[in-house]
Structures are given as structure tokens and as C-alpha cells.
Amino acid sequence: MTGIAPARPVRDPQAVAGRAGHTARRSRQLAGMLYAAPTALIVVVLFVVPLVLVVWMSLNRWPVLGAPTFNAPANYAKVSQDPLFLDSVLFTLKYTAIITVLLSLLALGLALAVQERRPGVAFYRAAFFLPGAVGFAAAALLFYGLLNNDFGPFGFLGVNWIGTPNMALTSTIMLVLWRFAGFNMLILLTGLQAIPVEVYEAARSDGATRMQIFTKITLPLLRPTIALMLILSITGSLLAFDQFFIFTNGGPDNSTVSMVMVIYRNAFFRFDLGGAAALSVVLLVALVALNALQMRVLRGGRA
């Protein structure tokens, strides 16, 4: 929760001393609760209840049709024995590592290249970001055609873009870099622009080289923003679904099946909602723990 300041104490205009002030404050409290009521309704019904429900479902045999029956811990035992899931964990981790490194480097390069205001920069920024305005599903379908050798423009290269496990992963990485580089560039730009110009000027007048300015000033001051970008990239990649469902369809030979795809397959192909819920709980706990850890690192960077 770093970066979110706690609500400022409210100076109540009607909070006058005495009984009249007391009732006025009560009615103001009530008004506040009324305004917050839709938020509370949504948060409780569509967030808190599903969180409890997913845990309960994971403890039951839960078919799509018919009554659930308690069977704990069978669903969790299955998780550890599902070879497709275990493979998907390794694959998703590998994908996350590659994407996070490449995406961060590319985004940092782009952000540094367009950080100064000069003629043409607004156009470059828009060009790099424009793929990010397109929905991810649409982007995946675009690449599905673009990298089809009969239809797309790259057929003459004779590369089998999604035919082998390595090429399928490589092609997916190109798709994700294209779609998300601008998004991450924009995040880094907000951090770069928060660095006061005076800091750079002082360093320059002290005779610092460009490399020194980058490693001694830009990078350390950018650390919280880089951490934020890493969190978003890691979490997003661990939850990858669209790109592998739409673009490679898990293939070839289940070589590009991500963790979330296994959850989906369990729920809607094997009709085993309990098993899907158990996988969800495992993933949820892992990601919340990872997020908490990353937040601590992020906070450390800020202190």
C-alpha cells in the first residue's frame, strides 16, 4: 500500500460543541456512510464474499452441475500431482523472468530516449504507446495474422512462428513487448519527470559525465518507479492468459500452457470447479505473499 497516504482527518464544518453539534455530527456521519454505501456493497458482495467462497470451494468436490460435497484436502492433493499444472508453473516462471528483464530494459531505453522535451518527442511517445491503447486480446489476434506465414508479411523468412515450443515462446514475447513497452515507458517517464532539473544541473556543473549522471542520479532516484514497474510486470506475467490462450492456444504440445490456463481448463473442460478453486487459492496466496515482499522492497527504496 505504499504511495497511498492515509485519509487526512476531516475538519467537520458543523462540528460545534454542545448537543446541537453532536446531532449535527451524527447526521454528517450518517451522510458519509450513505455515500460510501455503494462502495461497501460492491466490495463486500463482489470481493470479500468471492474470497471466502473460493476457499470454501477448494475444500469441496464442486461440479458445474449438482450439489457440492466436502472432500478436503483432496483438491489440494491433486494440485501437487497434476503434471500439467507443475509444468505450467515452471513455464510461467520462465516466461515471467524473460518478459520482466526484456520489458524493463526496453521500457527504460524508450523512456530515456523520449524524456526531454524537444521537437518530435510527442510523436515518438504516442507511437510507442499506441499499441498499448489496443486491447490485449485484439493485439494477440493481430499477431495471430501477422505471424501467419500464408497471410502475414513475414512468410518469406520461412520461420515457423508458433510451430515449435521455442518459437512459440519467442513470438509471444515479441507480442507482449510490442503491446506493453509503451505502457511501462509511460510509468518510467512519470518517475523521470519527478526528478528535479536542479539535481542534473548541479551534477553537470560539478563535471559529472553522462554515465555518472545515469548511474549515480537517475537510477537511484528512479528506484521506486522501477520497483513499481517490476511489480506490475511480474504480477501480470504470472497471471498470463490471453496471449497463450488466443495466440498459441497452449501449443505446440502444451508447451505454452500458463498457470491461469490450467485453472481455466480444470473449471471449464474438466468441469472440476473445486480443483480450479484449489489452484486459485495456491496462486492467490503465492501472489499476495510476493506482492507483500515486493512492497517491502519498494518501501525500503523510498526510505
Partner: peptide, 16 residues
């Protein structure tokens, strides 16, 4: 809500 991965609560939401 930001902390909880999107994909993991869609299964219970489907049931709910």
C-alpha cells in the same frame, strides 16, 4: 482488490 489477482476470483464469481 489490487492485491488479489484478477484471474483467481473469477471462478468463485462465476458461482456467486
Amino acid at each position: 482488490i489490487l492485491m488479489v489477482p484478477y484471474a483467481t476470483i473469477l471462478i468463485p464469481l462465476y458461482v456467486l
